[in-house]
Amino acid sequence: MAERASDRVLRLLGMVAYLARHEGVRVDELARQFGVTPQQVVRDVETLWLTGTPGYLPYDLIDFDVTSLEEGVVRLTESRNMTRPLRLGAREGLALVAALRALQAALEGTLDDERAQVVSSALTKLSAATGELAGAVDVELAVGARPEVAAALTRALRLDRRLHLRYVDASDAVTERDVDPVRLVAEADRGYLLAWCRAADGERLFRVDRIVAAEVLDVPTELHPLSESSDRFAPGPDGELVTLHLASQGRWVAESSPVEDVRNLEDGSFEVDLRVVSPAWLRHLLTQVAGVVIDVRPAGLAVDVAQTARDALAAYGPLADAEAGRG
């Protein structure tokens, strides 16, 4: 994909400002600094060489030391007054400061002192430089793991080591398995560990709040082929198609579940289609939202949920009756 001219201009300006601060920088170093290939750095230098102030005679142009460049070192000899780093736009500063704050809050207690210090100094410096107090946005991220589990996950990821997990799956069964961790995904709802499960010989997404124990093994991880959308919870087409007709108060269901389709109806109610892989998950959802359910298809699901609820009420015994009496 061709790079947008605007993005390239920004990098060219950034390179001049960087080179004004650093006397002679190796091409590969400059490439790493700006996240591009060494070939791109050479092209960028060639473009900069052609630019300058009107007139465009030799002394009007941005210039580099030719001998150094032949040795693979970029040395700026004329900047045409472009040495200042460019300030951040209002939304740019806000977006970064808000993201950093969310990250800091989410990782609290899981980082060692040195790493926690880096996060906090980056935030302090950036807030000071942009004057952005991030009052406009407040993002809450949840990792949701117990501190010792989170610490084990981040350590295994840092050292590329295999993990042994005790994990409670959606049907409440405790499983033991060895996994090669790939990514820890922290979302507003909860955190997930994307890992290659050795028992299943496939990639799996684990809710970190259901990881009961995690042990970092003395075994390096292996590389596995991962699918592109692997870190999103999106049940495949093999799940059962379930349609819920809900009153408008249940709109959050459509907003927080992986729905296939939402149809708004005239009276403010709506229908959602879900692909359901885990019956336990659906039973839980329907028990929570029963008050706003108008209809469920297939109908057998409603019977199943209602029976489960009646069993639970029976287990409460007279306590359930007492609550009813009071209500």
Binding site: Y18, P85, A102, L107, T154, L157, R183, A186
Partner: peptide
């Protein structure tokens, strides 16, 4: 990046995707 002292170190919190 223009005011960074060197390329961003990526090993700080590897594998974390907020």
């Amino acid at each position: 990046r223009a005011v960074g002292q060197g390329a961003g170190a990526t090993d700080l919190l590897p594998g974390l995707a907020p």
